[in-house]
Computed example of a mutant assay.
Amino acid sequence: MVDPTPQDQLEQDLAQAQDLGRWLSDDERLERQRAEQQALTDKQQQDQHRLKLVALAIVCVVIPPLWPLAFGITLHLLFPKTFGRLLWVAGGSAVVLGVLTVGVGLAIATCLWMLIQSWI
């Protein structure tokens, strides 16, 4: 991006001062510039991430066994926050189900071991 000329910069500063009703200090101006730069960087990263996901979704659509993955990516692209929450719920449910399965399996194994020991 090309730096504005001093005249353009003065006009921008004047317009900003009129909008805010006061002149910004140098620190405030630098902070605003940093925030704008950070927002621009975040937007570019988000756009790049989105492009990668779209490309992956297209590849998954072309390969039939990967259609469920393509469906998941499409949901993520359309509803990122909702899909993220859904993944957290699904992951938590999987952990709870795994712990319950191991617990029940250990309980059954213990009962069988006790029965075998009582028969011996």
Results as ranks from 00 to 15, higher is better:
Gly98Arg: 10
Gln12Ala: 14
Arg32Ala: 06
Pro80Trp: 04
Ala15Phe: 06
Ile116His: 08
Arg29Ser: 06
Gln48Lys: 08
Trp88Asp: 14
His76Arg: 15
Leu66Phe: 15
Cys111Tyr: 14
Gln18Met: 14
Glu28Lys: 03
Thr101Tyr: 15
Gln44Ser: 02
Leu20His: 04
Ser93Leu: 10
Leu20Asp: 06
Asp19Asn: 07
Thr41Leu: 13
Gln12Glu: 13
Leu115Ala: 15
Ile73Gln: 01
Leu78His: 09
Pro6Tyr: 05
Arg50Gly: 01
Lys81Gln: 15
Gly84His: 11
Glu28Gln: 08
Ala39His: 02
Met114Gln: 08
Leu106Thr: 07
Leu77Asn: 05
Ser93Asp: 11
Gln37Met: 11
Thr101Gln: 12
Thr5Leu: 12
Asp26Leu: 10
Ala109Asp: 10
Ile120Arg: 15
Gln7His: 13
Asp8Arg: 15
Pro4Arg: 14
Gly21Val: 04
Asp26Glu: 14
Pro68Phe: 06
Pro68Tyr: 05
Gly21Met: 04
Gly21Ser: 04
Leu86Ala: 06
Ile58Met: 13
Glu28Gly: 07
Leu14Ser: 07
Trp67Val: 07
Gly98Cys: 05
Gln12Thr: 07
Val102Phe: 00
Ala70Trp: 01
Ser93Asn: 04
Arg50Phe: 03
Ile120Gly: 11
Ser118Met: 02
Met114His: 09
His76Ile: 00
Leu106Val: 08
Gln12Ser: 13
Ser93Cys: 10
Gly105Leu: 05
Asp19Ser: 13
Gly84Asn: 15
Trp113Ala: 10
Gly72Val: 09
Pro6Leu: 00
Gln12Ile: 01
Glu28Val: 02
Leu86Val: 00
Leu77Trp: 03
Phe71Ser: 09
Met1Asp: 13
Arg32Ser: 03
Gly92Lys: 02
Leu77Ser: 06
Ser118Leu: 03
Val99Ala: 13
Gly92Asn: 09
Leu115Ser: 09
Arg22Cys: 08
Leu86Tyr: 03
Leu78Glu: 06
Arg29Trp: 05
Leu86Gln: 04
Gly84Ile: 08
Ala15Cys: 00
Leu56Gln: 09
Leu97Gln: 10
Leu69Met: 12
Val96Ala: 14
Leu77Met: 08
Phe71Lys: 12
Gln45Trp: 03
Glu28Phe: 07
Val89Phe: 03
Leu66Ile: 05
Asp42Leu: 06
Leu10Asp: 14
Thr5Ala: 12
Ala90Met: 14
Leu87Asp: 01
Lys43Gly: 07
Gln48Cys: 03
Ala55Leu: 14
Trp23Thr: 01
Val54Ser: 11
Val61Phe: 07
His76Val: 00
Val2Asp: 07
Leu14Pro: 00
Pro65Tyr: 04
Ala15Tyr: 03
Ala107Val: 02
Cys111Gly: 00
